Computed example of a mutant assay.
Amino acid sequence: MLSLQHVSKTVDEQTLVSDVSFDVEAGQCVGLIGPNGAGKSTLMKLISGMYDVSDGQVLLFGQNVKRWSHKKKAQRVSVLTQDGLAPYPMTVYDTVMMGRYPHLKFFQRESADDLNRVDHVLALTGLTDLKDQMLDTLSGGERQRVAIAKAMVQEPDLLLLDEPTSFLDIGYQTEVLNIVKAWQQRTGLTVLMVLHDLNLAAQYCDRLILINQGEIVKQGSSDDILTTETLEAVYRTTPQIVRHPIKDIPQILL
Rank of each mutant, 00 (worst) to 15 (best):
V20P: 06
Q240P: 03
V234G: 12
P250K: 00
P35C: 08
D129F: 06
L124T: 04
D157V: 06
A112P: 03
K105D: 09
K150C: 02
V121L: 07
L16F: 12
D197V: 08
Q108G: 06
Y172W: 10
R186W: 04
V217S: 07
K73T: 06
N178Q: 15
R100K: 12
D23F: 04
V194C: 13
M98N: 08
V30T: 01
D94I: 01
I249Y: 14
V77G: 03
L138G: 02
A201W: 00
I209T: 12
H196W: 08
R109K: 14
K40S: 12
Y88S: 09
K9H: 13
L2S: 10
L85R: 03
I170A: 08
D52H: 12
G141W: 09
V234D: 10
H70R: 13
F61K: 04
R145Y: 02
S48K: 03
D162L: 04
V79C: 03
G37Y: 10
W68Q: 08
R143Y: 09
Q63K: 14
E175K: 07
D162E: 15
L104S: 01
S221A: 11
S21V: 12
V77H: 02
D55P: 02
W183Q: 11
H6R: 14
S21F: 09
T128D: 11
R145A: 06
I211T: 05
V7M: 06
S78G: 14
R236V: 10
P250V: 00
D224C: 01
S41M: 02
K45Q: 15
E13P: 00
L254E: 10
L192E: 02
F61S: 06
D197A: 08
D55M: 00
I33S: 10
L16V: 05
N116E: 10
V191K: 01
G99A: 10
S166L: 09
G171E: 10
K131E: 07
K150E: 00
R100P: 05
H244T: 11
M152L: 05
H244W: 06
L59W: 11
V24Y: 05
R76G: 05
D169N: 03
H6L: 09
H70T: 10
E110W: 00
P245G: 07
D223N: 15
V121A: 03
D248Y: 10
A86P: 00
Q184N: 10
Q133E: 11
G37W: 12
C205K: 03
S8N: 05
P245M: 03
D129A: 14
I252F: 09
L32Q: 04
T227H: 07
C29A: 12
A112G: 04
P156D: 06
Q14F: 12
L138N: 02
